[in-house]
Simulated scan of single mutants.
Amino acid sequence: MSFDPDHIEDFLEYPFFIKWVKDPNSQSNQYWEKWISEHPDKRELFLEAQTLAKALRPKENNQVDSAKLRAGLDSLIAKNNERGGQERSTFPGKKKQAFLTIGGSIAASILLAACLLLSYSWFGNKEAAPLAEEAKVLVRSVPAGMKKTFVLPDSTQVTLNADSEIRYSSDFAINRKIHLRGEAFFDVKKDPKHPFTIQSGALTTVVLGTSFGVKAYPAGDFSHVAVLSGLVKVRTDNGIEAELKPDEAGFYEVETGTLRKGSYDYESLLGWKDKVLKFKNASYESLFYELSKWYDVQFIYENGIPEGGDYSGRYQDQSLKNVLDGISYATDLEFTLSGKKVSVRVNSKPNK
């Protein structure tokens, strides 16, 4: 937004601000809510201007009630002096009464507003709309071992994978920005006026209306964005950009900061939302990391994490025991499951 005031006078001379106070509606309320969220450093100035404008309302016949005007100004001055640690001033009316400055521009603004109100009829009979509450951060999370689907205020549907979290502002209808930790699948409600943005680690994903998956766990070496429908733009913190079409994915390597685009296997990247757990040439470290999130268990290694690993396998809606039995059958690893702990040891016998 281009409006960037430095003084209260700037608000009082801004037609759209005056129109909002005079006759608020959903569109103008939305405008000022967004303006406040984008200019948090101007919030106090905004509140001063709104308070002043409301305090100086004229009566129905468009004549200023001088007694109420004087009392309102006196009250405003007193409140500002309490904050500024200055002496309270009085409203000018009798000779030799001083109208002291209040933080410089505030008193000048009050005089300006009083003069303008005496000369013009700014306001009608409606009360000014109250300032919307400051936007709050909302959190939706899913613990390890679970998956859950949420519907956002704009009707976008989000499915969170295990041990994942999203954060977004309470004014999401006009500020469609998500912070993601972990993995999620988004089916975004189309709204050309309000692009949908996801911040996930070093990746920023921007869409208008599409479905896609994003993975960016803090401990992971790789992040990805896999598009199922629509068009997605991905940008890294170091300025690399790529546009992704359906059946394309962007793969980001954390260590090198590189981004590459290519095709992807649906079940490997998005099968989790259909309860499909698929590994392709996975190292043991990444294998156990995925299983720990999926089943909410802790792996304990007798001699450290086994090196190497080149494991491939597919499981659909299987118990942890069945998955561990499958891995054990195909590798030289043995597992002991006890509650939420899994002991891992390397079998000295040759692979089966």
Rank of each mutant, 00 (worst) to 15 (best):
P15V: 11
G220N: 12
S200C: 10
E334S: 09
N62E: 12
G124D: 11
A282T: 15
G93M: 12
K79T: 14
P92A: 12
Y311K: 04
Y264R: 10
L56C: 07
W122M: 03
S319Q: 05
P246N: 09
Y315I: 06
G93Y: 14
G239L: 08
K193H: 09
I18H: 01
R167N: 06
F172I: 09
E285R: 15
E302P: 00
S169Q: 08
E13G: 09
E134P: 02
L73G: 14
E307Y: 02
S343Q: 12
D317V: 05
N347C: 02
G313L: 01
G93S: 13
L324H: 03
S268I: 14
K79G: 09
V346W: 00
S211W: 07
S119G: 06
G239P: 00
Q316P: 04
G209I: 05
K349W: 01
K68L: 11
L160Y: 06
S223R: 06
K321D: 11
K349N: 13
V188C: 01
R83P: 00
S328M: 02
S343W: 03
Q27L: 10
N161M: 03
L208I: 12
T159L: 00
V158S: 05
M146A: 12
G220L: 03
R70H: 11
F212Q: 05
L111R: 04
E82F: 03
V297I: 10
K275V: 10
